[in-house]
């Protein structure tokens, strides 16, 4: 057992590559992070940044081949999830570490009643009798706010709406009372009002049960309300990590700043939005130096050749930007620039 100050999950130098006919796609290329008990770590990034592949890697759900975990460790409660034998992993996965996927329609078995699917982990991991498991399944549905749970357990997934299915998925992920929940874009397919219900539910259950959550999303709004700490990913690499408030209000990487400034909420209506020039890089090609340097407004020669790794700037707040470390660049968001501009006028 671990002591209280070691993190629940510690990931070091994780690399997952896909060996395809067109070359090696470095989907995740050396990321490190940790999750403490009961806290929420938000992982943000655009499509192709490797955030989902990271989570699939932790659950060892990467199709091999073509995928391969090249290096790294993911220590959960003293056990390395990436190296432990499949037999032992099965006792952890779906029991102590569980996952919610983005699309609840494709992740529920359409042929099985939801009750059966909810009971399965209890029968396998907890050794409950069918009767007890069924009672527990009904209670789990009640906990996620599904009315008439006693009869709803006998329904098939197609008889539920999108929001309800996502509730079933959450009930299923939490039924074994896991210590760690990985939520991969759990609300992206849902409408805002339903999203608000689901986010509220995850927060409530997390508070009650002390579950740690890794919350993966591309939506900065969702992250700002959910996460205690944030990890920003770009092209398979981590570019910034820190407490949510620090990352949002004082970003220390030009990519984080660009991401925040690209959203309309950072601007007055109709005002020209900040844009990032160019396109995300092709991760199957070698990317020397900082992966963002090709699109970065502040990049210098050294950025394209020096390996960029996260270095801590202040307690718990790290950035991979070379120029920020050297002190030759101060990252300022539009909002801050605007506020100080107004201050000068007043």
């Amino acid at each position: 057992m671990t002591t209280s100050n070691t993190p629940l999950l510690k990931v070091d130098d994780l690399r997952t590559y896909f060996h395809t006919r067109n070359g090696v796609v470095k989907a995740v290329d050396g990321i490190s992070f940790h999750v403490n008990r009961g806290e929420t770590l938000g992982i943000v990034g655009e499509s192709g940044s490797g955030k989902s592949v990271s989570s699939y890697t932790l659950m060892r759900l990467i199709p091999t081949p073509p995928g391969r975990i090249e290096s790294g460790s993911a220590v959960f409660d003293g056990m390395d999830l990436l190296k432990m034998p499949e037999k032992d992993l099965r006792k952890v996965r779906g029991n102590r570490v569980t996952m919610i996927f983005q699309d609840p329609m494709t992740c529920l078995n359409p042929y099985l009643r939801v009750g059966e699917q909810l009971m399965e982990p209890l029968l396998i991991h907890k050794g409950l009798s069918r009767d007890d498991a069924r009672k527990r399944a009904i209670r789990a549905l009640e906990e996620v706010g599904i009315q008439g749970a006693a009869s709803r357990v006998n329904h098939y997934p197609h008889e539920f709406s999108g929001g309800m299915r996502q509730r079933v998925m959450i009930a299923m992920a939490l039924i074994t009372e896991p210590e760690l929940l990985i939520a991969d874009e759990p609300t992206t397919a849902l409408d805002v009002t339903v999203q608000a219900q689901i986010l509220d539910l995850i927060k409530k259950l997390q508070r009650e049960k002390g579950t740690a959550v890794v919350f993966i999303t591309h939506d900065l709004g969702v992250i700002s309300g959910m996460a205690d700490r944030v990890l920003v990913m770009y092209a398979g690499r981590a570019v910034e990590t820190g407490v949510t408030r620090d990352v949002f209000y004082h970003p220390q990487h030009p990519y984080t700043q660009a991401l925040i400034d690209s959203i309309p909420a950072s601007h007055a209506p109709g005002e020209e939005l900040f844009t990032i020039k160019g396109l995300p890089p092709d991760v199957s090609k070698p990317l020397p130096g900082c992966a963002f340097s090709l699109r970065c407004l502040h990049a210098e020669e050294a950025c394209r050749s020096t390996d960029a790794r996260i270095h801590e700037l202040s307690a718990g707040h790290g950035s991979s930007c070379l120029r920020v470390h050297q002190g030759s660049l101060k990252v300022i968001t539009h909002r801050v620039a605007h506020a100080s501009g107004q201050g000068a006028h007043a």
């Binding site: 900065l220 992250i223 700002s224 909420a265 950072s266």
Partner: peptide, 15 residues
């Protein structure tokens, strides 16, 4: 309800 459901990219306001 719709407006209140929109997540804001601002941790303090969200809280």
């Amino acid at each position: 309800a719709l407006l209140s459901a929109v997540p804001l990219p601002d941790p303090d306001k969200e809280k």
